[in-house]
């Protein structure tokens, strides 16, 4: 294995979400939709539970009367041992060299096994051809495909941005640095609740935050080893 391939494989892109900082404003949701050409759905589909989002913000109500509610951004957790890739009959979803769980839309046959296997329910199915208001259609991101009807889609950690960062680095004969690549949700978070970087680099911000006693992974007991790590809320006094 050459040096660069080895370096690529040693990377594991991951995200730390500090729930103490998250205000649940939804900027990440809007940024994700715009960046990744995630289409709007009709009111009828929305009521049927077919809302298309690659990231959503769940709100948990406090057990205490007048207690604070907690916002909980949920996106594809890019597991190291993902259940979704194991059930895909056509290898449309797989763990990539950087630990990013990729979704190859032209390969997807829309069987939705992966949606059933994902314990975090972060994959969404295209029930219809993507549709936008006429003005918004002109503003879709050319780096990201418009997924057709009948395929499953999900967060890719904005991997098209990683491709651009790789190209930039390759043209300058250097390796990709952490600062070269940030997903859209991390970039726009006004509360700086999201931190993105290389989990294998012990000196990175995400690594040190992941080692925090406040850190936990969603449904940790399943052993899926997610790359998205949450920092627990501290005790709050009302």
């Amino acid at each position: 294995m050459s040096e660069t391939t080895s370096q690529l494989r040693e990377r594991r892109w991951g995200m730390v979400i500090d729930l103490d900082r998250c205000t649940g404003c939804g900027a990440c949701v809007a940024a994700c939709k715009a960046e990744n050409n995630v289409p709007e759905v009709s009111r009828r589909d929305a009521f049927s539970g077919r809302v298309m989002n690659w990231i959503r913000v769940a709100h948990s109500e406090s057990q205490e009367r007048h207690g604070p509610s907690a916002a909980y951004p949920i996106l594809c957790l890019h597991c190291d041992d993902p259940p979704c890739t194991k059930v895909c009959p056509v290898h449309a979803t797989y763990v990539g060299v950087d630990g990013i769980v990729g979704q190859t839309y032209p390969r997807c046959i829309g069987c939705r096994y992966c949606m059933g296997a994902c314990p975090y329910t972060v994959k969404v199915f295209n029930w219809h051809e993507p549709q936008w208001e006429s003005e918004l259609r002109a503003h879709t991101n050319p780096d990201v495909s418009l997924r057709p009807k009948g395929v499953v889609e999900k967060c890719t950690f904005c991997s098209h941005r990683l491709q651009t960062a790789r190209d930039d680095a390759a043209c300058e004969s250097r390796d990709v640095e952490e600062s070269d690549y940030q997903p859209a949700c991390v970039e726009v978070c006004p509360a700086r609740a999201m931190t993105f970087g290389d989990l294998r680099d012990p000196n990175s911000d995400v690594s040190s935050m992941a080692r925090s006693p406040r850190s936990h992974r969603m449904l940790e007991e399943l052993g899926t080893e997610p790359s998205v790590i949450y920092l627990k809320e501290r005790e709050r006094r009302v």
Partner: peptide
Amino acid sequence: SGNARATVDCVLCHR
């Protein structure tokens, strides 16, 4: 190619 960056990662080329 022998170029380590030219992987066969699907999303490298598939949008």
